[in-house]
Design a protein around this nucleic acid. Structure first.
Length: 555
RNA sequence: GUCCCAGUAGCUCAGCAGGAUAGAGCAACAGACUUCUAAUCUGUAGGUCGGGCGUUCGAAUCGCUCCUGGGACGCCA
């Protein structure tokens, strides 16, 4: 618990005691005390609505209750400078901001670790994301999924969860056959032969490149192999090529994975049949029309789902159930899957599987990422994966840069559609929030550097010299960071981090314009401000690190 | 037809375990650089929170219903 949170807890306890001393309610009747930060500064630093909540229990008017609470609070508290009753019965607290002085030393000492907490208490969480089929380049949607997944994982880690990031490789099934046939066709075309692409083939430029590579390396010698040998070769070559490309791209995008899980391994290690058998033993499986069905309707799904088709092959649901059983068997307390919006209809059956396996429905959380629309020159860029004309993650990294992408993709709530404006992301102007935030960090670094060149150190700073309103606003913002991270972790909303860091940068710029930091005629005050600046730069850098954006020292 | 997401300022979006006068950025308008980076700041203006009904002392937030946009509804993955 950080300085800010300790203080809030103390205040809550004091309020609770005051309610009891005023004999307004019995201890068990008191609602949990909610402290909110009023939007309007004239309403104090914190406000509570407890008097309104107690109106029914105490059978008194809220303002009357508020007065009685305030009366009891008076003697007990040195945290509070002033208390006011306002509006329908709000109690507004104006805090004695002395506590803020403790903040700077704590931030400077904690450094990179500032913002962490033990909220998660080491609970084991697995985050599975991207998991794109290894049949082509990663595109925009994957980029958003990668950004959100990685940022969310960082946030959870910062909040004290034990996190593992996993990529599920769909290296079995029809799409891989199509990949093999597509590679074959491109290879033959590269040899000058007239070969048609398969009906559901992959038309990306990367597959054309594979064809050329193979033609160059092997000539037409591959055609001498038997048909099955050819198929296996094209499949394995294509798979390896695509997967390594994906790994390279994600690494460059600063999205590391702890584990790459192969779908094929579910078959080679015989995990699929046993998973279905578990469901069968529990009575959730039946046979009908020569197919094997899973009673997902027992868990609220629209209709039951087929696991084994009448031709004896599995539907995609079967390995997915086996996969999720495997995840749970590995001992994760919580599973988070990040899926594109086009898979949302799949949630009920996956949750059904989790419950049928004997786990609570909430063990699995599926975070849906809405679609991304790309805009260039004010126009929507059309995309189609089928014809291979999609804008790829790699192209975008080259064109707009990683920092802007990482920031933009996580800037909006995941369940809002995202308009990605290429021109804005590329622009080095005040319209671009990434530059705004990075500039704040760079500005501080410049000041710290200049101070150091002038021989001003701040190891013996006196925080009590920080008095101005702008500086206090900055301090309050700094103090919120840990709570913001916890909030983002609890609600799985990494976009809170971009909002926060933008606000913090805004406070910094405002402070910068109002006050000069380095003043050689007032060294004590300069030292205090330098310490504050350093604390701000640490916090900005920590927040940016959570979303995979660099904090430059100069721009 | 069923389900999911969205509908908030001119534009892009926050806010949605109910709380005071609904916020931010951009765009618009008016100002601030002989100063640690003006990639910045200060101010003004801008809103029946898609419509209606309901629950509540109190609703952008909860419930019902309708409208609009996007997506999903396979023994495809």
């Amino acid at each position: 618990m950080n300085v800010m949170q300790q203080m809030q807890e103390k205040l809550k306890t004091a309020i609770q005691q005051a309610v009891i001393s005023a004999q307004l309610a019995k201890e068990e009747e008191i609602p949990s005390i909610i402290l909110e930060q009023p939007k309007d500064k004239t309403h104090g630093d914190y406000a509570t609505n407890v008097a309104m909540q107690l109106a029914r229990i105490a059978k008194k008017a809220p303002r009357q209750i508020a007065e009685e609470i305030v009366e009891q609070l008076k003697d007990s508290n040195d945290l509070v400078k002033k208390v006011e009753i306002a509006g329908p019965g709000f109690i507004n607290f104006f805090m004695n901001n002395q506590y803020l002085n403790d903040l700077i030393p704590v931030i400077l000492e904690q450094g990179n670790a500032y913002g962490s907490s033990d909220l998660g208490k080491g609970v084991k969480v697995q985050v599975e994301f991207v998991s794109a089929n290894p049949t082509g380049d990663l595109h925009l949607g994957h980029a958003r999924g990668a950004s959100v997944g990685d940022s969310l994982s960082n946030v959870l880690q910062k909040a004290g969860y034990e996190v593992e990031r996993e990529y599920y490789i769909n290296d079995a099934g029809n799409q891989i056959n199509n990949l093999a046939y597509s590679v074959e066709a491109r290879y033959k075309q590269a040899l000058g032969q007239d070969a048609a692409m398969p009906k559901d083939g992959y038309h990306g430029a990367d597959i054309i490149q594979i064809g050329k590579d193979l033609a160059e390396q092997y000539g037409d010698s591959l055609l001498e192999k038997s048909e099955t040998e050819q198929f296996t070769f094209f499949r394995d070559y294509g798979l390896k090529y695509e997967l390594e490309k994906i790994k390279r791209d994600l690494e460059k995008f600063r999205v590391p994975f702890d584990h790459w899980f192969s779908e094929t391994s579910l078959y080679t290690e015989d995990k699929v049949v046993p998973a279905i058998e578990v469901l069968r033993e529990k009575g959730y499986i039946y046979e009908q029309d020569q197919a094997t069905w899973f009673k997902t309707t027992e868990f609220g799904d629209d209709k039951d789902r087929v696991l084994i088709k009448s031709d004896g092959s599995y539907t995609y649901l079967s390995p997915d159930i086996a996969y999720h059983k495997n995840k749970l068997d590995r001992g994760f307390d919580r599973l988070i899957n990040i899926w594109g919006a086009d898979h949302h209809g799949y949630i009920p059956r996956m949750k059904a599987a989790i419950q049928a396996l004997g786990y609570d429905e909430d063990t699995l959380k599926v975070q849906i990422i809405q679609m991304v629309n790309l805009f260039e020159n004010g126009e929507k860029v059309k995309m189609s994966k089928r014809t291979g004309k999609a804008v790829t993650l790699r192209e975008l990294m080259e064109e707009v840069g990683i920092d802007a992408m990482r920031y933009f993709f996580v800037m909006r709530s995941s369940d809002s559609h995202l308009d990605f404006d290429m021109d804005l992301a590329k622009s080095q102007s005040n319209e671009n929030p990434v530059f705004y935030v990075q500039y704040a960090h760079a500005r501080i670094c410049t000041m710290l550097k200049q101070a150091s060149e002038k021989g001003i150190t701040y190891d013996d700073y006196d925080v009590s010299l920080i008095q101005s309103e702008k500086a206090e606003d900055l301090l309050k913002k700094l103090g919120e960071f840990t709570t913001v991270v916890e909030d983002a972790a609890t609600n799985l909303t990494p976009h809170r981090i971009t909002q926060y860091v933008f606000d913090l940068a805004s406070s910094l710029h405002s402070f910068y314009n109002a006050e000069k930091v380095i003043n050689e005629d007032d060294i004590p005050s300069t030292k205090a401000k330098l310490a504050l600046m350093n604390a701000v730069s640490i916090t900005i850098a920590n927040a940016l690190a959570l979303i995979g954006v660099e904090a430059p020292e100069s721009m």
